[in-house]
Design a protein around this nucleic acid. Structure first.
Lengths: 243, 243
DNA sequence: GGCGCTTTGTGCGTCAGCGTACATACGGCG
DNA sequence: CGCCGTATGTACGCTGACGCACAAAGCGCC
């Protein structure tokens, strides 16, 4: 059987089975809000098909995306850190399925499964890198480059060159006005890198997009790709200098 | 005896003693770089007096601060997450002392001390909130507000209304040109909120500064203050919904 | 006491993105 | 088929910050 969430896929069979027994498959639909700042986290989610973005909301301003979660990750990190308070809003961007589980049983399994802890810790680190890079990217790079980056990140997560999304929403993700997205998207379209038709985006030229996107894309991707997922022997990791 | 690092102070005596046996006191001097991206983490640090800032470096751009660590925190989070790869540069901002320890013994103690794990997990969460808020802040708020925020954060960490720092450095922290800092600092000075004299900053009116700073300051502070440090019974936290 | 370095202050042209307003296209539904 | 809401495109003045260049201090050091 093929496990559609890579975080789960990296677990040894025993630990995975244990989780699976308590996991239920749910469909997350576009627009659904899984977490709201201030409200306690009820479930953890392991997306398979679905795509969820994490947004900070600053009073008097538009939202700003600081994380994008697909099949490579999970939602509910704070639980693993000892709190059930989500500092961000989790908004479903791409309809699809996810495996989910109530907080309490997750915690009890989490406490007992070293491989699960290891896997989640690795993912937390990855996410910190992602937030950090996003922060710098939002500060320094032009909308066009950031847009390109976002499209590539999304593609990686939904594993498809096509997905639906309005410019309005994209503006929220990037923290800019819709018009800014229109202009940037127009430029990309003119250069035949994407095609954009009423909320339906297609990536035509991934290579070209990567060239347009800032290096931030590669940086985050590298952390992910380099990370030993699965059964590599991570016990020894911290003594890397030992050879 | 008074423990000068609050993260350590929150530990039960037994666990603290165990750590202390392997900790050494070091003086961190202004300008020293503790971690560099790509280089493996050699030590963890628990600042007491010292102030350290965490910077991302994006190629072709100035640095950008995404974290500020003083007596309330630690350096070396990645170790607790199973990697010795620091994604950021750690630069000593304020000369002072810290307790430190080699990575290997830290890890071995960390694995065995549940209270230490809990405390560090709590801090990781705090730091993620900090990064997130900083990201949004850098995106939306004017330099003047961000500067005010930075000064307040620094004050909280060094526990003094006076510290030394050039505008050049401040520019790096905030991710803006030096001239932008000059203007913003000038404005604050004119309003008698701070006084600035050749690298020596004094906060004259904390209240006023808080009013000028964006709410981001309060948001991060609240997460920290609300967090149960010390001997509150955190075992029960995650099942809040069960009752 | 004056030389030189570091730090701070000022000026000015440029530009990306804001904010707002308005114009056009698509597409489903009655 | 035509209406209407949603989605996209265009225009324009405004401003915060950039990027660069240069002027004016403080301060240490000989």
């Amino acid at each position: 059987m093929h496990i559609a969430n890579s975080l789960l896929a990296a677990l040894p069979c025993k630990d995975y089975q244990r989780l699976l027994a308590r996991l239920e498959t749910v469909t997350l639909t576009f627009g659904e809000v899984l977490y709201r700042p201030g409200e306690p986290i009820q479930h953890v989610y392991f997306p398979t098909d679905a795509l969820v973005s994490l947004l900070t909301v600053v009073e008097g301003h538009m939202a700003l995306e600081i994380g994008l979660v697909g099949r490579e990750g999970m939602l509910g990190i704070p639980l693993a850190l000892g709190t059930n308070d989500s500092p961000v809003r989790a908004l479903v961007q791409g309809t699809g399925t996810a495996l989910r589980m109530k907080s309490a049983p997750f915690l009890s399994i989490f406490r007992q499964s070293a491989p699960l802890q290891r896997e989640i810790h690795r993912y937390i680190h990855e996410r910190m890198v992602q937030i950090t890079q996003t922060a710098a990217c939002n500060r320094f790079h032009l909308v066009e480059a950031r847009l390109a980056r976002w499209l590539l990140m999304t593609r990686d997560r939904v594993q498809s060159d096509q997905f639906r999304l309005t410019q309005e929403l994209l503006g929220c993700m990037l923290g800019v006005l819709r018009v800014a997205v229109t202009k940037a998207a127009g430029a990309l379209q003119q250069r035949k890198l994407i095609s954009y038709r009423r909320g339906e985006i297609s990536i035509l030229d991934g290579q070209g997009l990567e060239a347009t996107a800032c290096r931030c894309y590669q940086v985050v991707k590298n952390v992910h790709d380099r990370a030993p997922s699965g059964h590599s022997n991570r016990e020894e990791l911290p003594v890397a200098a030992v050879a």
